[in-house]
Design a protein around this nucleic acid. Structure first.
Length: 277
DNA sequence: AACAAGACCTGCATGC
DNA sequence: TGCATGCAGGTCTTGT
């Protein structure tokens, strides 16, 4: 599921319901996720109050009042669902948290590519999961210049570079395709050869598509849900992703076979060969 | 060092 | 209907 906009959508909903609340229960139901759940999960969470819910790249960071932070990643299929009247736990509900006001949080992940662990808040920047992450695209420091510096010397295709979390953090397959369309750059172009003007245009396109997707609640292809169960709807605004053979918005490429699907690094890439060069 | 490919796990759509 | 196949929003590991 989730790239930066989907994770940000989840973060906002969790923050609204959890910050300032005390955790009264914490149950680990199935522990073999991408990394094993902490054995002492309940002991470390029950009684703690949530102080903030942050995000770095695609990681959710749930800060607690004892100086610990819960790090969670949704993988491909993970969800965080909030309930007032919790349903009976299902096979893929791996962690269930309860708060003093009766809210329940279900961490559900069918494919178990996600993870949840607990770290020292003061050392988050040095945590193995977070230490190598690259530019945060919605932060002030993300500009054409910093993007150009991150891409300098890179021989791989720009599409692959955007998926590399050590370069720009939080972009996944959908938004890499959509941002390159917005910047009118071919996904096959060598990353290190983009000039300053095209890097500036790409940085703007990345921010633009991420902001628009967050406003739409993310994109729901199959797994993504907002924590209240609502679907995202940005998939209706995709220009190229999943649209092979169809015309792209505002171009007559349909006459020439439309949007093309290629494979780069074993991932599908969608682009308009007429508009993206 | 940088890069490409394979692995991880489950569910769903498609086609026979 | 049942079964096989391929594909999916991510990232870690391995090998070149």
């Amino acid at each position: 599921m989730p790239e930066l906009p989907e994770v940000e959508t989840v973060r906002r909903a969790l923050a609204a319901r959890l910050v300032g609340r005390r955790l009264t229960s914490a149950a680990a139901r199935r522990g073999d996720l991408r990394t094993a759940l902490p054995r002492d999960l309940a002991a470390r969470l029950v009684g703690r109050t949530v102080t903030e819910v942050g995000r770095r790249a695609k990681y959710l960071l749930i800060g607690l009042d004892d100086g610990a932070t819960v790090i969670a990643h949704l993988g491909m299929s993970g969800r965080m669902l909030l309930y007032r009247d919790p349903p009976p736990p299902g096979a893929h509900d791996h962690v269930i948290l309860g708060t003093a006001d009766g809210t329940h949080v279900y961490f559900n992940d069918a494919r178990r590519f996600g993870l949840l662990t607990i770290a020292d808040s003061k050392r988050l920047a040095r945590h193995p999961l977070l230490k190598d992450l690259g530019l945060e695209p919605l932060a002030a420091g993300f500009t054409g210049a910093t993007l150009a510096a991150a891409l300098a010397g890179r021989k791989t295709a720009i599409k692959a570079a955007l998926l590399d979390q050590a370069t720009v953090a939080g972009i996944g397959n959908i938004y890499a395709c959509e941002a390159l369309f917005g910047a009118r750059i071919s996904p096959r172009r060598q990353a290190g050869k983009l000039g300053p003007a095209r890097c500036a245009k790409l940085a703007r396109a990345i921010k633009d598509v991420l902001v628009r997707a967050i406003a739409a609640g993310g994109a729901t292809l199959r797994d993504h849900r907002q924590p209240d169960g609502a679907l995202g709807y940005f998939q209706h605004d995709f220009a190229v992703y999943g649209r092979a053979g169809l015309p792209c918005p505002g171009c007559d490429c349909g006459d020439a076979g439309g949007i093309r699907r290629i494979v780069q690094g074993a991932r599908a890439t969608f682009y308009c060969p007429r508009r993206q060069r």
